[in-house]
Write a protein that binds this DNA or RNA. Sequence first.
DNA 1: TTAATTAGTGCATCAAAATACACTTTTTAT
DNA 2: ATAAAAAGTGTATTTTGATGCACTAATTAA
Lengths: 72, 72
Amino acid sequence: MHYEELIKTIKQRREVMQVTQESVAELSGVGLRTLKQFESGKGNPTLMTLQKLADVLGMEVCLKLKNVTVSK
Amino acid sequence: MHYEELIKTIKQRREVMQVTQESVAELSGVGLRTLKQFESGKGNPTLMTLQKLADVLGMEVCLKLKNVTVSK
DNA sequence: TTAATTAGTGCATCAAAATACACTTTTTAT
DNA sequence: ATAAAAAGTGTATTTTGATGCACTAATTAA
C-alpha cells in the first residue's frame, strides 16, 4: 500500500465506524492535530502513531511480501 | 503486527536476501544509522522510512482488519 | 587465532513529527 | 437558510526522528 492508500484506508475505516477525528484522537492518544494532518494527506507519521490509530480502528499495521514475478 | 514483529520481519527478510545493512541503507536511501537503530529495536521510524526499507526488501506496508469476533 | 566484515552505540546536529491554541472552511442536520 | 458539528489550517513550541562520524562489539571467514 502506498502512502495515499494507507491514509485513505484509515480515513474510510473511521468513517465506517462513524467516529469523529476527535474521538479517535482521544481514544488512541494521538494528538488531534496530528490526526487531522495525517488524514488530510500531510506529514509523515511515525510507526507508533500509525499503530495507535490502526489499533483503535480495529486494524493493524503489517508487512507482506510483494508479488514476486517468476519468469518462466 | 506489533513493533517487535515488524522489526524482526524486516531483519529476517534482509538476512534471507543476504544483504548487509549497508547495502539496504544505500539501496533504500535510508541512513545507515537509522537502519541500525531500527533493527536493534530502538527508535520509532517514520512511515516513509519503513516504506523505503520494505520496498527494497520486496515487501510492502499494509493495514488490515483485525479479527473481529462476532458473538452469536 | 586472528584478520576482515558486519552490526551496534555515544555524541552531536538538523530537520521534521507531535502537539496545542485559535481560527476558517466545510459538512450535516434542523 | 442557518445553527451546530466536524474537518482543515496558520503559527509556534517541544520533542524526537534521521543522519554522520568515530569507535566498540560481535560475527564470519581464512
